[in-house]
Amino acid sequence: MPYVPSKKTDGKSTDREVIDAALEPLAQSVAEDITNNFSLRPIYEQTFIRVAYDLRDILKSPSVVGNGLTWDLAKAIYETGAKYGYEGVYLGEFNYAFTRFIQRVPQIKVKRGDWKDELRYWLYAETVTALCHAEKETEHLEIGVDGVFRDIKDEYKRRMNTAYEAAQIVKSGDCYDGPYYTRLVEVVDEEGRLIGHMEVMLKRSQDTLHKDVLDRQLVLKSKNPYTP
Protein backbone atom coordinates (compact mmCIF):
# COMPACT_ATOMS: atom_id res chain seq x y z
CA MET A 1 0.00 0.00 0.00
CA PRO A 2 2.54 2.71 0.90
CA TYR A 3 4.34 2.54 -2.44
CA VAL A 4 2.69 5.71 -3.76
CA PRO A 5 4.41 9.03 -2.97
CA SER A 6 2.66 11.66 -0.86
CA LYS A 7 3.49 15.13 0.37
CA LYS A 8 5.39 13.41 3.18
CA THR A 9 7.74 12.03 0.51
CA ASP A 10 8.93 15.29 -1.00
CA GLY A 11 6.61 18.05 0.17
CA LYS A 12 4.82 18.34 -3.17
CA SER A 13 3.63 14.97 -4.51
CA THR A 14 -0.13 14.77 -5.13
CA ASP A 15 -0.19 11.15 -6.35
CA ARG A 16 -2.35 9.88 -3.51
CA GLU A 17 -4.69 12.84 -3.76
CA VAL A 18 -5.27 12.18 -7.47
CA ILE A 19 -6.08 8.52 -6.86
CA ASP A 20 -8.23 9.33 -3.82
CA ALA A 21 -10.27 11.81 -5.86
CA ALA A 22 -11.10 9.12 -8.43
CA LEU A 23 -11.62 6.45 -5.77
CA GLU A 24 -14.10 8.32 -3.59
CA PRO A 25 -17.06 8.42 -6.04
CA LEU A 26 -16.59 4.72 -6.78
CA ALA A 27 -16.46 3.83 -3.07
CA GLN A 28 -19.58 5.92 -2.44
CA SER A 29 -21.42 4.17 -5.28
CA VAL A 30 -20.39 0.71 -4.11
CA ALA A 31 -21.39 1.49 -0.52
CA GLU A 32 -24.85 2.47 -1.76
CA ASP A 33 -25.17 -0.70 -3.87
CA ILE A 34 -24.39 -3.00 -0.93
CA THR A 35 -27.82 -3.73 0.52
CA ASN A 36 -27.00 -6.70 2.78
CA ASN A 37 -23.89 -8.43 4.05
CA PHE A 38 -23.68 -11.07 1.35
CA SER A 39 -24.22 -8.63 -1.49
CA LEU A 40 -20.78 -7.19 -0.72
CA ARG A 41 -18.72 -9.98 -2.25
CA PRO A 42 -20.16 -9.97 -5.81
CA ILE A 43 -20.16 -6.17 -5.90
CA TYR A 44 -16.54 -6.04 -4.76
CA GLU A 45 -15.59 -8.73 -7.29
CA GLN A 46 -17.27 -6.87 -10.13
CA THR A 47 -15.57 -3.62 -9.15
CA PHE A 48 -12.10 -5.15 -8.82
CA ILE A 49 -12.35 -6.91 -12.17
CA ARG A 50 -13.83 -3.96 -14.08
CA VAL A 51 -11.04 -1.64 -12.97
CA ALA A 52 -8.48 -4.28 -13.97
CA TYR A 53 -10.01 -4.63 -17.44
CA ASP A 54 -10.24 -0.87 -17.86
CA LEU A 55 -6.59 -0.54 -16.89
CA ARG A 56 -5.66 -3.25 -19.40
CA ASP A 57 -7.42 -1.29 -22.15
CA ILE A 58 -5.64 1.93 -21.20
CA LEU A 59 -2.27 0.18 -21.13
CA LYS A 60 -2.92 -1.12 -24.65
CA SER A 61 -3.90 2.31 -25.95
CA PRO A 62 -3.29 5.24 -23.58
CA SER A 63 -5.29 7.60 -25.80
CA VAL A 64 -8.43 5.44 -25.69
CA VAL A 65 -11.48 7.22 -24.30
CA GLY A 66 -13.80 5.60 -21.79
CA ASN A 67 -16.29 6.57 -19.13
CA GLY A 68 -17.70 5.46 -15.82
CA LEU A 69 -16.41 5.34 -12.26
CA THR A 70 -14.23 2.26 -12.75
CA TRP A 71 -12.71 3.84 -15.86
CA ASP A 72 -11.97 7.05 -13.98
CA LEU A 73 -10.09 5.14 -11.30
CA ALA A 74 -8.17 3.05 -13.84
CA LYS A 75 -7.20 6.23 -15.69
CA ALA A 76 -6.01 7.88 -12.47
CA ILE A 77 -3.95 4.80 -11.61
CA TYR A 78 -2.37 4.78 -15.07
CA GLU A 79 -1.65 8.50 -15.30
CA THR A 80 -0.27 8.74 -11.78
CA GLY A 81 2.26 6.01 -12.47
CA ALA A 82 3.07 6.84 -16.09
CA LYS A 83 5.19 9.87 -15.29
CA TYR A 84 7.77 7.66 -13.56
CA GLY A 85 8.53 5.94 -16.85
CA TYR A 86 9.19 2.31 -16.02
CA GLU A 87 7.31 -0.86 -16.85
CA GLY A 88 4.82 -2.03 -14.24
CA VAL A 89 4.90 1.18 -12.23
CA TYR A 90 1.09 1.28 -12.15
CA LEU A 91 0.99 -1.80 -9.91
CA GLY A 92 1.94 0.24 -6.85
CA GLU A 93 -0.85 2.69 -7.62
CA PHE A 94 -3.28 -0.20 -8.16
CA ASN A 95 -2.29 -1.62 -4.77
CA TYR A 96 -2.79 1.73 -3.07
CA ALA A 97 -6.19 2.29 -4.69
CA PHE A 98 -7.74 -1.00 -3.60
CA THR A 99 -6.07 -1.04 -0.20
CA ARG A 100 -7.85 2.26 0.38
CA PHE A 101 -11.06 1.00 -1.26
CA ILE A 102 -11.55 -1.96 1.10
CA GLN A 103 -11.17 0.40 4.05
CA ARG A 104 -13.11 3.32 2.62
CA VAL A 105 -16.33 1.44 1.78
CA PRO A 106 -16.84 0.25 5.38
CA GLN A 107 -16.12 3.77 6.64
CA ILE A 108 -18.86 5.09 4.37
CA LYS A 109 -21.30 2.37 5.45
CA VAL A 110 -20.77 3.24 9.11
CA LYS A 111 -21.12 6.97 8.44
CA ARG A 112 -24.38 6.32 6.57
CA GLY A 113 -25.68 4.39 9.56
CA ASP A 114 -25.92 1.12 7.61
CA TRP A 115 -23.34 -0.67 9.77
CA LYS A 116 -22.21 -0.26 13.35
CA ASP A 117 -18.60 -1.35 12.81
CA GLU A 118 -15.99 -0.92 10.09
CA LEU A 119 -14.70 -4.45 10.60
CA ARG A 120 -16.44 -7.68 11.53
CA TYR A 121 -15.27 -11.17 10.70
CA TRP A 122 -17.90 -11.70 8.00
CA LEU A 123 -16.64 -8.54 6.26
CA TYR A 124 -13.05 -9.72 6.41
CA ALA A 125 -13.98 -13.15 5.01
CA GLU A 126 -16.12 -11.77 2.18
CA THR A 127 -13.46 -9.23 1.22
CA VAL A 128 -10.80 -11.95 1.09
CA THR A 129 -13.04 -14.11 -1.08
CA ALA A 130 -13.58 -11.21 -3.49
CA LEU A 131 -9.84 -10.53 -3.70
CA CYS A 132 -9.07 -14.21 -4.34
CA HIS A 133 -11.72 -14.37 -7.06
CA ALA A 134 -10.38 -11.21 -8.70
CA GLU A 135 -6.88 -12.67 -8.64
CA LYS A 136 -8.03 -15.75 -10.57
CA GLU A 137 -10.18 -13.79 -13.02
CA THR A 138 -7.43 -11.32 -13.97
CA GLU A 139 -4.43 -13.64 -14.31
CA HIS A 140 -4.98 -14.00 -18.06
CA LEU A 141 -4.74 -10.23 -18.54
CA GLU A 142 -0.98 -10.56 -17.95
CA ILE A 143 -0.60 -7.05 -16.55
CA GLY A 144 0.36 -8.10 -13.01
CA VAL A 145 -2.79 -7.10 -11.16
CA ASP A 146 -3.52 -10.69 -10.14
CA GLY A 147 -0.42 -10.57 -7.94
CA VAL A 148 -1.54 -7.24 -6.54
CA PHE A 149 -4.89 -8.68 -5.46
CA ARG A 150 -3.04 -11.46 -3.65
CA ASP A 151 -0.73 -8.96 -1.99
CA ILE A 152 -3.65 -6.79 -0.86
CA LYS A 153 -5.25 -9.88 0.68
CA ASP A 154 -2.05 -10.71 2.55
CA GLU A 155 -1.59 -7.12 3.73
CA TYR A 156 -5.22 -6.99 4.88
CA LYS A 157 -4.62 -10.06 7.05
CA ARG A 158 -1.37 -8.77 8.48
CA ARG A 159 -2.20 -5.10 8.95
CA MET A 160 -5.86 -5.19 9.98
CA ASN A 161 -7.25 -8.64 10.76
CA THR A 162 -4.35 -9.61 13.02
CA ALA A 163 -4.99 -6.56 15.19
CA TYR A 164 -8.73 -7.30 15.15
CA GLU A 165 -8.06 -10.89 16.26
CA ALA A 166 -5.93 -9.60 19.13
CA ALA A 167 -8.78 -7.38 20.28
CA GLN A 168 -11.16 -10.35 20.18
CA ILE A 169 -8.73 -12.51 22.18
CA VAL A 170 -8.51 -9.85 24.87
CA LYS A 171 -12.29 -9.53 24.86
CA SER A 172 -13.40 -13.18 24.68
CA GLY A 173 -10.35 -15.41 25.10
CA ASP A 174 -8.14 -17.46 22.80
CA CYS A 175 -9.03 -20.82 21.22
CA TYR A 176 -5.62 -22.27 20.33
CA ASP A 177 -4.25 -25.07 22.51
CA GLY A 178 -2.18 -27.04 20.00
CA PRO A 179 1.47 -28.00 20.50
CA TYR A 180 2.56 -24.57 19.25
CA TYR A 181 0.69 -21.28 19.45
CA THR A 182 1.05 -17.57 19.97
CA ARG A 183 0.03 -15.60 23.01
CA LEU A 184 -0.39 -11.88 23.41
CA VAL A 185 1.83 -9.71 25.53
CA GLU A 186 1.07 -6.14 26.56
CA VAL A 187 3.19 -3.30 25.22
CA VAL A 188 3.24 -0.38 27.65
CA ASP A 189 4.97 2.97 27.94
CA GLU A 190 7.42 3.86 30.68
CA GLU A 191 4.54 4.85 32.95
CA GLY A 192 2.87 1.48 32.50
CA ARG A 193 0.10 2.77 30.23
CA LEU A 194 -1.11 0.26 27.67
CA ILE A 195 -0.08 1.03 24.08
CA GLY A 196 -1.12 -2.20 22.40
CA HIS A 197 -0.27 -5.88 22.09
CA MET A 198 2.27 -8.09 20.33
CA GLU A 199 2.37 -11.83 19.70
CA VAL A 200 4.90 -14.19 21.26
CA MET A 201 5.51 -17.59 19.62
CA LEU A 202 5.43 -20.42 22.13
CA LYS A 203 5.58 -24.17 22.58
CA ARG A 204 2.65 -25.42 24.63
CA SER A 205 3.26 -25.42 28.35
CA GLN A 206 1.15 -25.30 31.47
CA ASP A 207 2.61 -21.87 32.20
CA THR A 208 1.00 -20.32 29.12
CA LEU A 209 -1.71 -22.75 27.96
CA HIS A 210 -4.58 -21.12 29.82
CA LYS A 211 -3.45 -17.52 29.46
CA ASP A 212 -4.86 -15.25 26.77
CA VAL A 213 -2.38 -12.50 27.61
CA LEU A 214 0.96 -13.34 29.21
CA ASP A 215 1.67 -11.95 32.66
CA ARG A 216 4.65 -10.06 31.28
CA GLN A 217 4.98 -6.65 29.66
CA LEU A 218 7.19 -5.08 27.02
CA VAL A 219 8.14 -1.47 27.73
CA LEU A 220 8.62 1.01 24.89
CA LYS A 221 10.92 3.87 25.69
CA SER A 222 10.07 7.30 24.34
CA LYS A 223 12.23 8.63 21.50
CA ASN A 224 12.02 12.03 23.16
CA PRO A 225 12.38 11.48 26.89
CA TYR A 226 10.94 14.18 29.10
CA THR A 227 13.51 16.62 30.44
CA PRO A 228 12.34 18.78 33.39
Rank of each mutant, 00 (worst) to 15 (best):
N95Y: 07
A97K: 11
A97Y: 06
A97R: 09
A97M: 13
R100D: 13
R100Q: 15
Q103G: 07
I108F: 00
K109P: 01
R112T: 03
R112C: 01
K116F: 09
E118M: 14
Y124P: 05
Y124T: 03
A125I: 12
V128Y: 00
C132E: 11
C132G: 12
A134T: 10
E135D: 09
E135M: 12
E139S: 05
L141E: 03
E142V: 11
E142H: 04
V148I: 14
V148E: 04
D151Q: 13
K153P: 01
K153H: 07
Y156F: 08
K157I: 12
N161Y: 15
N161T: 09
A167S: 12
Q168P: 04
I169G: 00
I169N: 00
V170K: 03
G173P: 00
G173F: 09
D174K: 09
C175G: 09
Y176I: 14
Y176C: 09
P179Q: 11
Y180P: 00
T182C: 05
R183M: 05
V185G: 04
V185F: 02
E186D: 06
V187Y: 03
D189L: 03
D189F: 02
E190I: 07
G192A: 02
G192L: 05
E199D: 05
L202D: 02
K203T: 13
Q206W: 05
D207G: 15
H210R: 10
K211S: 04
Q217P: 02
V219C: 12
K221A: 14
P225K: 08
Y226S: 08
